Simulated assay, not measured.
Amino acid sequence: MQDKNSKISELIELNDELENYFRNTIIPQLFVDSNLVLRKFTPPAMKQFKLHQSDIGKSITEVKDNFRFPSIVDNIEQVINTGELLEKEIQTIDMRWFQMNILPYIVMQENKTNGVIITFIDITSRIRDLKEQEKLIMEHELLLDTISHDIKTPLTSLGLTIEMLKKVPEKGMEKFPVLLEKIETGLLKIKGIIIDLTDARKTEHHYKAIEELLDIEQIVEDVRLTLASQILESNAIIKWEVAHSEIVFVRRKLRSVLYNLINNSIKYKSAGREPKILIKTYIEGDYFVLSVSDNGRGIAEDNLEKIFKKYERIANDVEGTGVGLHLVKEIVNLSGGKIEVESELDKGTVFRIYLKNQNPNISDGAADSSNKT
Rank of each mutant, 00 (worst) to 15 (best):
M1D: 13
Q2L: 13
D3H: 15
N5H: 12
K7S: 10
E10G: 06
L11V: 06
N15V: 04
D16E: 13
L30I: 00
L30C: 02
V37G: 06
K40Q: 13
K40H: 10
F41G: 00
T42L: 07
T42R: 03
T42F: 05
A45N: 02
K50L: 13
L51K: 07
Q53T: 12
D55G: 05
S59V: 05
R68N: 13
P70E: 05
I72E: 02
I72Y: 07
D74N: 14
E77H: 10
M95I: 11
M95N: 15
F98L: 00
N101K: 15
Y105L: 14
V116A: 01
I117D: 03
I123K: 02
T124Y: 05
I127G: 01
I127T: 01
I127N: 08
E134P: 00
M138F: 10
H149T: 13
T153W: 12
T153V: 13
L155N: 04
T161S: 11
K166C: 04
L180A: 04
E184N: 06
I190Q: 08
T198A: 05
T198N: 08
A200W: 09
R201S: 14
K202C: 00
K202H: 10
I216V: 14
Q218R: 12
I219M: 10
E221V: 00
S229M: 12
L232D: 10
K239R: 14
E241D: 15
F249Q: 06
Y259R: 09
Y259I: 00
N264Q: 09
R273W: 09
E274S: 14
P275C: 07
P275N: 03
P275T: 01
Y282E: 11
S291C: 11
I299L: 00
K306L: 09
K309M: 11
A315G: 07
D317F: 12
G322Y: 06
H326G: 05
V328W: 00
V332Y: 04
N333T: 15
I339F: 05
E344C: 00
D346V: 07
V350H: 09
Y354A: 03
I362F: 10
S363F: 12
D364S: 14
S369H: 12
S369D: 15
T373Q: 15
